[in-house]
Amino acid sequence: MAEGILVVGEVAEGKLSPTTSELLGAARKLGAGAVSCALFGPDAAGLAQSAAAAGADKVYVVDDTALADYTTDGYAQALAKVIEQASPAAVLLGQTDVGRDLAPAIGARLGVGVAMDAIELSWQNGGLQITRPAYGGNARAVNGFKSTPAVATVRPKSQEALEPDASRQAEVISVAGAIDAAQIRTKVVNKTKAAAEGIRLEDAEVVIAGGRGLGGPENFAGVEELAKLLGGAVGVTRAVADMGWRPVSEQVGLTGKVVSPTLYIAIAVSGASQHMAGCSGSKNIIAINKDPDANIFKSARFGIVGDFKQVLPPLIEAVKKIKAEG
């Protein structure tokens, strides 16, 4: 009998990724039996205790040199082995680079239904039910699963991690049987990391977002200055990334990053649903836009209807003054 929830864990900078902890927290909250975590690659075994502390009852470790780089074929093979052994009722992955790629691959391999980018999870009549945004965030779809295991990816920051409990113990299971490297038909030949300076966009408590209305890359100076002043990161819309004004790694939205800062200041951003998909979890959205009907105002707490060229310099001055007053 298929039972319990399997979370596909990810490693970020040698640690269990925050999204993995969120998924483990969500899996526990579902109350659908034992929670397991699958960990792949050379760092995996060392992170079993972190997974336990975050809520896992069992940790399945697949440590194989063939899993050092993420490849669809290698990870799908590894995950299929874990699923076979753990026989879960549902498999949860993050809507991350890995989850986006791996979830449909495992779905096709097992011939089961897959739902992507869930923002709500529930357990109904012994099965997973998820709610996900569709139509660029304009609609919400609620999906159930006829096949087992149910496979779903979950939007980062949509779920809450548990307070880590170092005293929690998990059974650690090392999954036997090597990965067949001959079945890995893709090869990573090069990786380029976007130059990241300052605070990571996904972790920032303050995000200053600039849109196409800024008119050109030179006008991001003010955005950067405000971000620096508030200890935040710069985010952009896809329009800005597409024009090459800023790197794609700064894109916020459905096909970019998901952020949930305390303060999100959107400057000359129209607030298209696909952009809001990446920032609607922000605690306070502030909008500066010259169009009073811009969609962004529908999600904003405070707003200024005006030209950023006239509003941004005095805003920076006023913030500086407040900061100086302490």
Partner: peptide, 11 residues
């Protein structure tokens, strides 16, 4: 299909 659409709505 293996997925069911149980509900569709506008947030």
């Amino acid at each position: 299909s293996q997925l069911t659409l149980d509900r569709l709505y506008q947030p």
